[in-house]
Simulated assay, not measured.
Amino acid sequence: MKIVAVTACPTGIAHTYMAADALIKAAPKYNVQIKVETQGAMGIENPLSSHDIAQADKVLIVSDIDIDQAARFEGVNAIRISIEEVLLNVDKVFLVHGR
């Protein structure tokens, strides 16, 4: 399974990157290939291409705020998850959304 994700938090510092790191570290346990775009204080890092989005089986928007360039995800089945949900139980995220 291929998942792409965007992580973003209101301040764009710690939680954005902590959530990305948690997703990347947990993905192999669930046999998931993942690419994570972060939208933090430094802007968009590791940007998802239109090809990345089109090839993904699932799109996760891990954010409690509006993300930049959200129009890229119109027409795809994007699932919105809170940053807190990922940080508190990343395994549950993969068990519920990673299948």
Rank of each mutant, 00 (worst) to 15 (best):
I13W: 03
I13K: 08
A14I: 11
H15M: 09
T16H: 01
T16D: 08
Y17M: 04
Y17D: 04
Y17E: 07
M18W: 06
M18Q: 09
A19D: 04
D21P: 01
D21M: 08
D21G: 05
D21Y: 04
A22I: 07
L23Q: 04
L23S: 04
I24L: 11
I24D: 01
K25P: 01
K25T: 11
A26K: 05
A26Q: 10
A27S: 06
P28S: 08
K29F: 08
K29D: 12
K29C: 06
K29V: 13
K29M: 14
Y30F: 14
Y30M: 03
Y30Q: 01
N31T: 09
V32C: 02
V32M: 04
V32Q: 00
V36H: 00
V36I: 12
V36C: 02
E37M: 03
E37C: 06
E37G: 05
E37W: 06
T38Q: 04
Q39H: 09
Q39G: 07
Q39W: 07
G40H: 06
G40E: 08
A41L: 15
A41M: 15
G43K: 14
G43A: 11
I44H: 04
I44E: 03
E45C: 09
E45G: 07
N46R: 10
P47G: 08
P47L: 09
P47V: 05
L48G: 05
S49Y: 07
S49G: 08
S50A: 13
H51R: 15
H51T: 14
D52E: 13
D52L: 11
D52Y: 12
I53P: 01
I53H: 05
A54S: 15
A54Q: 15
Q55C: 11
Q55W: 09
A56D: 02
V59Q: 00
L60V: 07
I61C: 05
V62W: 01
V62K: 01
V62G: 04
V62F: 02
S63M: 07
S63W: 02
D64M: 06
D64I: 02
I65T: 08
D66H: 13
D66R: 13
D66M: 15
D66V: 12
D68K: 13
A70Y: 13
A70V: 13
A71W: 12
A71G: 13
R72V: 03
R72E: 13
F73Y: 15
E74K: 13
E74L: 14
G75F: 11
G75Y: 10
V76H: 12
V76Q: 11
V76I: 15
N77F: 11
N77Q: 14
N77V: 09
